[in-house]
Design a protein around this nucleic acid. Structure first.
Length: 958
DNA sequence: CGTTTCACG
DNA sequence: GACGTACGTGAAACGT
């Protein structure tokens, strides 16, 4: 933590600064420092609750600075206002800068106080940025023959670097002179503004020239001297894209240059002489530090000489804010104000049953409530409940802390270890809330309900079976998959125009992160109750849109029902044989050591095989193997396709590297990664299925991802065999056969393919016979392989080039195969074209079941990006249609199994496969039940088919 | 933190 | 005339 790393500050700073031979001005970029300190340091609060982390960081820095770098002159420079002369040049300048976070706002004033307490001049001026004033003072001081040090890491200040002017990074304590600028911008300091003019700056909204970044800009400026030289020569530039961009956006570049160029002629708020360094007045400085509770600083500066009972905080943090009682009138949903009318904030912290009762009554009266839980972990399986928030109307929400401990001790901030805040016991709160949360007459609205339901249903968290439920994340996903993300913060900004407090702001990040249960109650309430409030408002706004958007059935009958199904699958987990994984890992290690030896020998020297960069240099620079291609970053490509090609030409090294890479991948990702995820309580791994991340309606799986467990090679299959059934059980795997191709036959209505599926024939052989004009018995393996490749390629929107490279044939030949394909199956060509134009016109395509899938980039001007979007549009209905079919099977499955009296548990879904754990005696009956559900879930123009197997482990079940 | 590679469907 | 080139995911390692 920064507080403990701070170098000691000795009392010398209180003495007169030593006279330097040469005048030296230190200019501290106060504004830049404040933001960095705020984000870099963990949250800290004064005893009265005022946040002071940035103040502490600033004070500590200034104290250190005055000790180490005695100077003749010093000032701290601040931004005075948001609006400056740059806004007149370009109205978008810094337009997207969010307001300062609420925890930072009160610290600005304190930092000016700190500066004054050190007897250092504060400099600011309306209409100018701190950077301009710094530039102006630097020039003025240099004019007097002095040295200037600017304490800042802001790259915008690098243009000021010259022999008499240097920057100093206050956090890294690293000087920034010409070489550092050259490294950052690729040009000397006097050309920095020209580079910035071209490259722009997204954080400040400086536009620059589209498509040109720092690298390109530096190369251009080096070649043409400066911006005007470049713009004059623009028509002669060879790269067409770059040329067009420079010509079209010349004026934008000129404006950008004016925006980034600091105004060294800015009027000085004080004459330079007034910035002369003066020693602090000890009394005033001590008073300030004491007020903030910075005891360690007081001590280090020798300002705490006397015992100081009077410096102890006068008040302990107040955890129990007086709670205004609820207005007696019940909320009226119909008459409720528009979702964005009520203000956010002003939420109540509930610490006793009497205060909770009116909220429960209000929720009952309303019939709908927002609900959110706070826990000590993102992992629902281990998460311990630390609080519950409920919202009964927009702007009316409360937080019920249940497991909050004391905030983390911080020697500087608090005099004595604080006690845990007063709060309701979990048992008491659960007793009061359970009837409400299980009340069928009260709808509970959550965002990502699966998580909260998983937490609340666990016995140690009260065993609450929340119902009925709506989920705003899924409501949004049902209508707008692929259009944007569906996290609460994003939806709130999008639909409510409100940026909620982020989790990271409340808990801090990285090493400084504290568990939510240690967050002070006022901050916890502001965050947690707001989430329930936002959730309820989103529901009011989005739920009514489902029906007109034709997404109500999808949401209610598929997505919402998936919540409980997936919750049970995640809770169930799947058993993994850790000992077997360890044996596999040992074997892989030995083989890797052997391979590594051989590879280094073949290479003629040792290198890191895991580094694509080093490998590329070995293969193509040193060994001069043919066929190397550089990627866009200039590095040699070394992926499996490249190495495979080299290996087939008889080179020994690439083959060994391929083998090594496979083992390295399997070992790190699966053997070690998976072993680390085994829950010691049940020796099972519990994945987290994400319901709203894919653009196609598929699920995804994380921590661990159980949807990409190896199977294709023997080494990989060993890992899959480490997934086992409990004793007395087997694993049963049920795969949809060719589901996407069945959807192709259905959607494009292809008679021959429909016929093949109806008769249960091999679909790729049928395709081969059709497009190559062969009799069914003349289709050989090669013809079938080619037909299979093209069948899959079609679903992916493949080009002739792509098919050619997959099949290793000339593009012209690929072209004629594709032509034959489309002339045999004209409906498919028609369908592909229809999907592209649908996407272009509406922005989305529909799955066969009516789910809208939004296609990002379909209107893009760049050909490559638009091409990607068109292929995505072609693929989406097939991938999405398949996803929907299996989801429908999944929501029916638990009931079907139960009605058949079967004890099988569904464990995993892998896009077209379901995996079950089944008692040994029930295998046949379960297979029959699963088959009936899966095949009966949709009536297409072709039959659906499920292929079912079982075994002691996942490998054998296939 | 972005890039590269590779595991799956 | 150049560029990119098969869809959708998530995890690990490298190197800046």
């Amino acid at each position: 933590m920064a507080t403990t790393e701070a170098a000691s500050v000795t009392p010398e700073i209180l003495a007169e600064p030593p006279k330097e031979a040469e005048p030296h001005l230190i200019l501290v970029d106060g504004s830049g420092y404040i933001f960095r300190a705020f984000h870099a340091l963990p949250p800290m609060n004064r005893p009265d609750g005022t946040p002071v982390n940035a103040v502490f960081g600033f004070t500590n820095m200034l104290a250190q600075f005055l000790t180490k770098h005695a100077s003749s002159h010093i000032a701290v420079v601040f931004d005075a206002s948001r609006v400056t002369f740059r806004n007149a040049i370009y109205d978008q300048y810094k337009a997207h800068r969010p307001e300062a976070p609420p925890e930072l706002a009160p610290q600005f004033g304190l930092i000016r106080e700190a500066t004054a307490a050190f007897n250092v001049a504060c400099v600011e001026r309306e209409g100018f940025e701190a950077d301009d004033l710094i530039a102006a003072y630097a020039r003025a001081f240099e004019g007097k023959g002095g040295q200037v040090t600017i304490v800042s890491s802001d790259k915008d200040l690098m243009q000021l670097v010259r022999p008499g002017v240097q920057l100093l990074d206050p956090i890294k304590q690293k000087p920034i002179r010409e070489p550092e600028v050259l490294e950052k911008f690729g040009v000397s300091p006097d050309k920095v503004v020209d580079v910035q003019a071209l490259a722009g700056d997204s954080t400040d909204n400086v536009p620059g020239v589209p498509g040109i970044g720092i690298k390109t800009a530096a190369a251009l400026i080096t070649e043409y001297g400066d911006l005007e030289g470049l713009l004059a020569a623009a028509p002669q530039i060879k790269q067409p894209k770059r040329r067009e961009a420079l010509i079209a956006h010349a004026e934008l570049a000129r404006i950008s240059k004016r925006l980034v160029t600091l105004d060294a002629a800015a009027p000085l708020p004080h004459p330079v002489d007034e910035l002369v360094a003066r020693p602090p007045e000890p009394g005033r400085l001590a008073g300030f530090l004491r007020e903030q509770g910075f005891r360690s600083l007081l001590h280090r500066m020798g300002l705490d000489g006397d015992a100081q009972p009077e410096t102890a905080p006068v008040s302990r943090p107040r955890y129990n804010a007086p709670s205004p009682s609820l207005a007696p009138a019940a909320p009226e949903p119909e008459a409720a104000p528009a979702a964005d009318a009520a203000p956010f904030g002003g939420y109540e912290t509930i610490t006793e049953a009497a205060a909770l009762a009116p909220w429960i009554a209000a929720a009952r009266e309303a019939g709908v409530m927002g609900l959110d839980t706070e826990t000590d972990s993102l992992d629902a399986l281990h998460a311990k409940l630390v609080g519950i928030s409920i919202a009964v109307a927009p702007g009316r929400a409360c937080y019920i802390p249940l497991g909050h401990g004391a905030p983390p001790g911080n020697g500087d901030m608090l005099q004595e270890a604080p006690a845990a805040p007063v709060q309701m016991s979990q048992a008491e709160a659960v007793a009061a809330l359970k009837p409400l949360l299980e009340d069928p007459a009260v709808l509970k609205v959550l965002h990502n309900a699966k998580y909260d339901l998983e937490v609340l249903c666990r016995a140690e968290n009260g065993g609450i079976a929340v119902a009925p439920v709506d989920d705003t994340m899924l409501i949004s996903y049902s209508m707008e998959a692929g259009r944007h993300g569906h996290g609460m913060d994003e939806l709130s900004a999008l639909h409510l125009g409100h940026q909620p407090i982020t989790y990271d702001t409340v808990t801090g990040t990285g090493r400084a992160r504290i568990p939510f249960g240690q967050v002070a109650l006022d901050k916890a309430t502001a965050y947690a109750a707001e989430d329930a409030d936002v959730t309820l408002r989103l529901w009011q706004l989005l739920k009514p849109r489902l029906r007109p958007d034709h997404a109500l059935a999808l949401y209610e009958q598929v997505e919402r029902r998936m919540v409980a199904v997936l919750r049970d699958m995640e809770l169930a987990g799947i058993k993994v044989d850790g000992a077997e994984l360890a044996r596999i890992g040992e074997d892989f290690s030995q083989r890797m050591v052997e391979l590594e030896k051989q590879i280094h020998e073949l290479a003629g020297r040792a290198f890191n095989i895991g580094s694509p960069k080093q490998l590329g240099e070995i293969l193509f620079d040193e060994q001069k193997l043919p066929g190397g291609k550089r990627g866009k970053a200039g590095a040699w490509g070394t992926d499996a396709a490249v190495l495979e090609e080299l290996a087939t030409r008889g080179h020994a090294l690439p083959r060994r590297v391929l083998d090594w890479r496979q083992l390295a991948k399997l070992k790190s990702t699966y053997v070690e990664g998976l072993a680390a995820q085994i829950d010691p309580r049940d020796r099972r791994v519990h994945t987290d299925f994400s319901m709203a991340v894919t653009s196609t309606g598929r699920l995804s799986s994380t921590e661990p991802n159980l949807q990409n467990i190896p199977i294709r090679t023997e080494e990989g299959a060993r890992i899959r065999r480490a997934f086992v059934a409990e004793p007395g059980h087997v694993l049963l795997a049920a795969d949809y056969s060719q589901i996407e191709l069945r959807l192709l036959a259905h959607l494009a209505d292809v008679p021959s393919l429909r016929d093949a599926f109806a008769k249960g024939e091999d679909i790729h052989s049928r395709t081969a016979a059709d497009i190559f004009g062969l009799a069914p018995d003349k289709v050989d393996r090669e013809a079938r392989r080619r037909a299979k490749t093209i069948n899959f390629g079609i679903i992916y929107g493949m080009s002739a080039f792509g098919l050619a490279s997959r099949l290793g044939i000339p593009p012209a030949e690929a072209r004629s195969i594709i032509d034959a394909y489309f002339s045999q199956y004209p409906g498919i060509l028609e369908e592909m074209e229809r999907l592209k134009s649908e996407a272009r016109e509406k922005g989305y395509v529909l799955t066969p079941f009516g789910r809208k899938l939004w296609i990002d980039g379909i209107q893009a001007k760049e050909q490559a990006r638009r091409g990607n979007a068109e292929r995505a549009a072609i693929n989406a209905p097939f991938q999405g249609g398949a996803a929907e079919i299996i989801k429908r099977a999944m929501v029916r499955m638990p009931r079907a199994l139960q009605e058949a009296g079967l004890k099988a548990r569904m464990l995993l879904q892998v896009h077209d496969e379901l995996l079950f754990e089944v008692p040994e005696g029930e295998v046949e009956a379960t297979a029959e039940c699963v088959r009936t559900v899966m095949e009966g879930v949709a009536a297409l123009r072709v039959p659906l088919k499920a292929e079912i197997g079982h075994g002691a482990n996942w490998g054998e079940a296939h």
